[in-house]
């Protein structure tokens, strides 16, 4: 089996029952993902990108077609396909440590000793820089920190595939940028296969090896796949000026807004759409600010010299 065949989605379609007969949410989605690859799935809200992820996670069953991971068909959820949920989904009655512990105990029971498990939990929390707040409960930490713990919980399962469902969607632009950097670092170190759902074009370009662009539902499917040929490690500020970055960004934007743009009258979630553009504007402003800072630093340095 070649490495190209790590995770294969073949002709995956899904129908949801409605009072007016079945509603085809996804139609014949095909995707092959190699080991260690970082793939983003992007599309308008309601296009079924989360549905794809849920099928891979095993939380939904494809009506037709299916998923093969390392030669085995995926039929049910399992810890080898760890999910980071959009709203962190930490158990509110457990501390950060206990939340990760629940996963570690489940996956490594009988394989690791108690001391090894403790070390492993602490290691994963320190990977996401949460080792200082291990004993805090979710209601005592910020949204970004909760999402970090969610990522630590997923990483601690040592998954073959890490599934991220709009992991940073609910966070402010600055926190999001921090977590994106953390995620890149972790992925560089661990080499996980990652599938990430996002609606943020910059996030997709910055993090991914490939971007899968989905058409609008009903019967959504893969519209186009874009290869991102940016060298790693990637620096968001330095990279934002390179022609490749600009090309990728433009390609995604033109797919989303020119060829598969949603007409406003069809859009049920206009508010969310505005929020997204507002968020994008905010991210851009932050990045502009960041590049300004870099310039100022350079000036200071040259002056000092």
């Amino acid at each position: 089996m070649s490495t190209k065949e790590h995770l294969v989605i073949t002709q995956a379609s899904i129908d949801f029952p409605t009072p007016n007969g079945p509603y085809r949410a996804l139609d014949k989605v095909n995707l092959k993902i190699a080991k260690g690859e970082f793939v983003s799935i992007i599309g308008h809200s309601g296009c079924g990108k989360s549905t794809v992820l849920n099928i891979v996670a095993g939380l939904y069953q494809a009506t037709e077609g299916g998923i093969i991971l390392d030669g085995k068909e995926v039929n049910e959820p399992g810890p080898e396909r760890a999910v980071v949920f959009q709203n962190h989904s930490l158990l509110p009655w457990m501390s950060a440590y206990e939340n990760v512990e629940l996963a570690v105990k489940r996956v490594f029971k009988g394989k690791k000793s108690k001391a090894e498990m403790k070390e492993w939990i602490e290691h994963n929390l320190s990977l996401v820089h949460m080792d200082h707040a291990m004993d805090k409960r979710p209601d005592e930490i910020s949204g970004g920190m909760k999402q970090r713990v969610g990522i630590a919980r997923a990483l601690a399962m040592e998954p073959q595939v890490l599934l991220l469902d709009e992991p940073f969607g609910a966070l402010d632009a600055l926190t999001r940028a921090h977590l994106q950097d953390s995620l890149m670092e972790i992925q560089k170190d661990l080499g996980n296969t990652v599938i990430m759902i996002t609606h943020d074009v910059d996030e997709a370009v910055l993090l991914s090896d490939r971007i899968v662009m989905m058409t609008n539902g009903p019967a959504a499917t893969v519209g186009e796949i874009l290869d991102i040929n940016l060298p790693r490690p990637r620096d968001r500020v330095a990279m934002s000026e390179t022609p490749e970055y600009i090309r990728c960004r433009k390609a995604v934007l033109s797919f989303l807004y020119e060829r598969h743009g949603k007409k406003i009258e069809e859009e049920p979630e206009v508010v969310e759409e505005t929020v997204e553009t507002a968020e994008e504007a905010a991210t851009e402003a932050v990045e502009a600010e960041a590049s300004n800072l870099v310039d100022i630093k350079k000036k200071v340095k040259t002056e000092a010299a």
Binding site: G58, L59, P77, G78, V83, F85, L91, L102, R106
Partner: peptide
């Protein structure tokens, strides 16, 4: 879902 993914 967390419980399902962890197969508790």
């Amino acid at each position: 879902n967390v419980s399902k993914v962890l197969r508790l």
